[in-house]
Design a protein around this nucleic acid. Structure first.
Lengths: 193, 193
DNA sequence: GTCTATAATTCGATAGAC
DNA sequence: GTCTATCGAATTATAGAC
């Protein structure tokens, strides 16, 4: 029976270790991007040896993939009135990012996607699989196809300047003012010409 | 007199070499960001040895600084009518980036600023020294202080998604459509609430 | 002014002991 | 399951020959 309990505790420990590695990896990738994040640093943060990271995740690239399971958790946009759509989007991402910007998977991915091809490809996937369909359902496929990209540009532009670059002129603004100023702007993009 | 001509040709060659290094450095930093750009690769592109880069620029950080003398060349916004201000801004950056995106110093800087503190600090300087004053002159200091950040967020969001991430939904759009859709959006941000 | 040679690090990855 | 030891490659940077 000692062998049985031993297996159990062993499995649990490996799960904890794996989770600790993932958490540390997300923080490092978020703070430094893909290139500057080292497996050694991740292992050190997780309180284990670097070789354990390799054992669990194979290599750095696969660790990056595992650390970035992204769900934008977009609300169902078909249930919100058309005139509230833009504000809903702005508020959604503001709330998401204000909560824990340093640990948000989308910002983590964005930071790496600027210099890493694999991460950029992942951004394309996220957009195609989550943003585009949600907007198409609310706006209709034709309008969404022509404007979803620019809406994303506006929202990612906010994420970029406020949480990654930390431009003082953007970080100084309270969230209410951002929402009030940006919602009409997104609305303007969504309005057919 | 042979010594004199020798000095002359020598000086000219060193200038050419220095210029070739700077050009190669800009292209590498633009394509790969700060971290992934190696002095060896820059030297190879410039057709010289890596040690020459060190000789001329001291170290990688100083080379980066030298490669990034950025002038946004913003037009005098006080001469454009208020209702054309947003469109002027959008058109200015579109024209700038469409021309030669891979070699544009602002995009080079942006790519690196996301993961490099030094580059991010430089972005802050550019904003404070060029964007903020230009908008303050056209909009007045109070409104500019509250909205210049979000205007920059929208413009940089376009640069980010179209030229760095190359999101298909954004790269697929013709410049005219971007201008027509984004100008009213920037206008909406500039309109006082 | 240019290059060779190399020092000093650092990193990803592997092999193997316990 | 975890760690020690280490390899091999790549990088920044330096010293010095020509």
């Amino acid at each position: 029976m000692s062998s049985e309990s031993e297996i159990t505790t062993t499995d649990k420990r490996s799960d904890r270790t794996k989770a600790a590695i993932l958490r540390a990896a997300r923080e490092r990738f978020a703070a430094q991007g893909y290139e500057r994040t080292t497996i050694r640093a991740v292992a050190s943060d997780a309180g284990i040896d670097a070789s354990m990271v390799m054992r669990y995740f194979g290599n750095k690239e696969q660790l990056f993939d595992a650390a970035l399971a992204i769900d934008l958790r977009l609300p169902d946009l078909t249930t919100v009135p058309a005139e509230e759509l833009a504000r809903t989007l702005v508020r959604h991402f503001l709330a998401r990012w204000e909560g824990d910007p340093a640990d948000d998977a989308l910002l983590v991915l964005l930071r790496s996607a600027v210099t890493n091809e694999r991460a950029a490809a992942r951004m394309h996937e996220i957009f195609a699989a989550q943003v585009a369909p949600a907007l198409a359902a609310a706006l209709g496929p034709e309008l969404a196809a022509r404007r979803a990209g620019l809406v994303s540009a506006q929202l990612l532009g906010l994420g970029l300047t406020r949480y990654l670059l930390r431009l003082p002129a953007v970080t100084a603004l309270p969230t209410e003012e951002i929402e009030d100023a940006l919602a009409p702007a997104v609305e303007a993009v969504l309005a057919a010409e």
